[in-house]
Simulated scan of single mutants.
Amino acid sequence: MHARGAARLRAGALLLTLTALLSGCTSAPEPAPEPAARDHWRPEAGLGWQWQLSGPLDPAVDVPVYDIDGFDHGTAAVDGLHRRGRKVICYLSTGAWEEFRPDAGKFPARVLGRGNGWKGERWLDIRRTDVLEPLMEKRIAMCARKGFDAVEPDNMDGYRNRTGFPLTAADQLRYNRLIAEIAHRHGLAVGLKNDLGQIPELEPDFDFAVNEQCAQYGECAKLSPFVKAGKAVFHVEYELPVTRFCGQSRRLGLSSLLKKYELGAWRQECPQPRG
């Protein structure tokens, strides 16, 4: 073989070797793992709280937790409560449509059911997660943007009411878990509102509970799974005097208040037991 031909063969072999090495080095990198969800607050059983959804916000109540309307209050209100050492819960309706909310026009008529007993509100067809998930994601993202620590999603027990839709317990479980997942995805704690019948299934998915009138209807013991798990149960009564429910609340470990139906600033705490 001529020397020039041998040199050409050696050069070709070297080129093949370099090409193989380079192809191994330039292979597509593995996709980066998705970022983990941000850690969130976990309210402990027995925390004192204030629930105010109407009237000028009174930030001076000396309790560690406030629950306020997510649409009505902005970053300044949340920051102000944080400066006072409060954790702040964002109240939202996730199971009913409210005509007075700024995003009301984004809900198509096909997901609106019967009225839920409050003026301007109608139950939602929670089976239609294709419609509702992006809308609820935007609402919960709003709470996170404003700096809230948690979400109180309301109207989470439509399957037990006359909604205009044939909702089942399984539909409610799926929807409630979806709301909890969205909240956690945004780094927020999330509370189970009422829905006492599904507490055994849903307690692991939620960080605390919010309940209305369990004492009046003899249902407070159903909230025990939350307390046994070390999780707060924020509870209000409207029609019973504190002497009728505070003893039971202390025994069960509930964080109980007497409030008026309009949920303004007025509140009455359970008196401290005598030493």
Rank of each mutant, 00 (worst) to 15 (best):
Y159M: 11
F107A: 10
L92S: 02
R185Q: 13
D79G: 06
D130G: 04
R122F: 01
E121W: 11
Q52D: 07
L263Q: 01
D62V: 02
A77Y: 01
A189H: 10
A28L: 14
P64K: 06
S224W: 07
W41N: 05
V63S: 10
C270F: 02
G48K: 15
P166D: 11
P200D: 00
Q272K: 15
D103G: 05
E237R: 03
G85T: 01
T94W: 04
D130F: 05
F100R: 10
L178I: 00
L21N: 09
G164R: 12
Y261D: 09
K260Y: 12
V190Y: 13
F208V: 10
H82S: 08
A104E: 01
P108K: 04
R267D: 01
H184D: 13
R128Y: 06
P35D: 10
M142K: 04
D67G: 06
A77E: 12
L192T: 08
Q52H: 05
P204G: 04
L173K: 14
R10K: 02
G253Q: 04
G191Y: 05
L16D: 10
Y91F: 11
P35N: 11
I179A: 06
A6S: 10
A13M: 14
F208E: 08
I182R: 08
A109E: 15
L135I: 12
T94K: 01
Y217I: 06
G264N: 00
M1D: 11
K193V: 11
R185K: 10
A7P: 01
G158K: 09
H82W: 02
R110I: 08
N161L: 12
I89S: 02
E99M: 08
T17N: 03
F71S: 01
G197M: 01
R10P: 05
K146C: 00
A144I: 11
A3R: 15
S249K: 00
A11Y: 04
E152M: 11
G95K: 14
W97T: 07
E239A: 12
R251H: 11
Y217R: 03
G120P: 13
R38G: 13
A229P: 02
S93L: 07
G95E: 05
L124S: 09
W266D: 12
T26G: 03
V236T: 03
G115K: 15
L18G: 12
C246M: 04
D130W: 06
K87E: 05
D154I: 06
A96G: 09
G264A: 07
P35K: 13
G197F: 01
V227H: 06
G147H: 02
G5V: 13
G113F: 04
G253I: 09
G80C: 03
S255D: 07
G120V: 14
D103S: 02
P102E: 09
L16F: 14
W118K: 05
T168V: 09
G191N: 00
G247D: 13
K259Y: 11
K119D: 15
A60V: 09
G85I: 05
L22P: 06
C25N: 10
D130I: 07
G85L: 11
L22S: 14
L202T: 03
T168Y: 02
L53N: 12
R8M: 09
W49Y: 15
E201Q: 15
R128E: 14
T17R: 08
D69Y: 06
F107R: 06
T243K: 05
G48F: 10
